[in-house]
Each structure stands twice: as structure tokens, then as C-alpha cells.
Simulated scan of single mutants.
Amino acid sequence: MSQQQSLRLGVLQMLAAMALSGTIGWFVLQSGQSVWNVVFVRCLLGTLGLGLYAWWRGQWRSWPFTGRSLAWCVAGGVALVANWLLLFNAYHYSSIGIATMVYHTQPFWLLLLGRMVLGEALTTRKLLALAVAFAGMLLIVQPGGGGSASLLGVGLALGAAVLYAVVTLISKQLPKTLLPTHIASVQTFTGVLLLWPLLDNATLWVVGAHWPYLATLGLVHTTLMYIVMYAAFRQLPTHWIGLLGFSYPVVALLVDYLAYGRLLDGWQLLGMVLIIAANLWGLQRQGGAALRPAPARQG
């Protein structure tokens, strides 16, 4: 395969993965299940799907973890599951579109955490981009109103963004020899163990209309999406990954409109533009490192 063909394939794979990610909110809401149940089933089916895929590819022939790397993977799994719980709750309190846009401030929280935890430098460009993104977030939150429930949704999405930044920081502690499927399998299995005691068994383990939505979240939005996305990462340079990642919130906004008739007002649209512009200007030209997704993508 030529370099141009490889790049084209990577672009298509990344767009497909981001399009799937943008529809997650709809499946979460349509399932009608508690977020505990939704995240549990996503983790359970994701573990089975990714684990079997890794086995099929011969990636479990030897145990890939040391005690330290396994501990870091488990810690990342705790943060990832908490991130999903907050984000999926945010969909209920605000909207898919608003929650997704607030959630997309994650790269900037990664910058701040990197500065506080790892002592990484913050350039003038990054600080200005952070200020612009914060202004964009305020525009998204304030003008639309919506009352205390909407603000709670925004707060949950913001917490999810910070937690996903934590997942990304933890991923930096893992050896590069670990395959993404290994990392994601451990993280989702951690979610299974954490959430099992919290399930609403009376509504989950019955035959009902919720199962097609939950099965899709586990098998399509976790197993298939991660496989396609990781394949795209191998084909694309980092700055392309960051650029194409912005199709995720655009799809989420479109889904929110088509499914529920929700539209951002003028000020909120301006806020969205500021967040995207801040990412492209402040982070993309720094090599895009802050835009690279963690081993297990949030969506």
C-alpha cells in the first residue's frame, strides 16, 4: 500500500471512529437504563470483544504486563470508568451537544495537569489557547440558561474531561511495548469489577428494548470503534489525529438536533468555535501531543 493510500485509509478509519463516538449519547439515552448499568454492560462486552480480538490476533501468547504496568492500567481503568459515569450522566442533565462540547476541553486540562504533576512547560501560546477555550466554555454554559439541572450537566461533563485527562496522563506511565488492546481490555475489565455491586439488577437482567442499545454500545462503540481507531492511529501522523478528532463533537451536535431538536444558540455556537479554534491554534502546532487520545478513547 502506498503512503497516499495508507493516509487515505487512516482518514476514513478515523472519521468512522469519530462518527461512532458522536452517536454514543443517543444510545445511552435511548437505552433508558441507569448509567451504572450502561457503563457496566459497555465494559463487560468491551472486555469480551477486545479480549477475543486480541486472542484472535495472537496477542495473548505471553503475559504482557509487569506488576507496575498492570497497576497503572487498573488505575487508568478506574479513571476511565468514572469519566464515563460522569459524561453519561451529563447527557441526562444538559444535552448531548453541550456536554460533548464542554467535554472537548479535555486537552487543556491535560496541559494543566501535566504542568502540576509532571512539571511540563506551558508556553505563551498554550496559555492563550487555554484562556480562549475557557471563554468558549463560558459562552456555551451561560447564555442557554436551562437552570440548575443544565449547570449540573455542564459540571459533570467538566469533571469527565478532567478525568479523561487523568487517563491520558496515566497512559504516559505505561511501557510502549503494551498493545492498545491489552490496555483497553484491562481498563474495561476493571470497570466490570467496580460496577458489578452497583447494578440495578431488576431492570437490567430482563428481556427488553434496552438490550439492542446496550449491546451496540459494548460491541460497536467499544470493541469495533477502538479497533478501527487504533488502526487509524497507525496510519496517520499525530496532527491529523487531532484535526480529525473534531468531527466527534460535530457529529454529536448533529445527532442532538436530529434526535431531540436541540440547537445551540448564537453565543453557544461562538463558544464552540472558540474551543475548536483554541485546540487547533494552541495545541496542534505544538506537535499535537495533547490531542492524541488515551489508550481507551472516552466516547
Rank of each mutant, 00 (worst) to 15 (best):
V81H: 02
G76D: 03
W72L: 07
S94E: 07
L85K: 02
F88S: 07
N89E: 15
W84I: 10
T66S: 15
W84D: 07
S94Q: 07
A75K: 04
P64N: 01
P64G: 01
A90P: 15
H92R: 15
C73E: 00
C73Y: 00
I96R: 13
F65H: 03
W72C: 02
Y91P: 14
C73K: 03
G76A: 11
A82Y: 12
S94M: 06
A82H: 10
P64R: 01
A71G: 14
F88Y: 13
I96M: 13
S69L: 06
V78E: 00
C73D: 00
P64I: 00
A90T: 11
S95Q: 08
W84H: 14
S69W: 06
I96V: 15
R68K: 12
I96E: 11
H92W: 11
L87E: 10
A71T: 14
W72P: 02
S95N: 13
L87W: 06
S95E: 12
N89C: 10
S94D: 12
V81L: 06
G67T: 14
S69H: 08
L85I: 13
L86S: 10
C73V: 03
I96G: 12
L80F: 15
V74G: 02
R68Q: 09
W84M: 09
S94F: 05
V78D: 00
A79T: 14
L86Y: 06
N89F: 09
G76R: 04
L86F: 14
A79D: 05
A75M: 10
C73N: 05
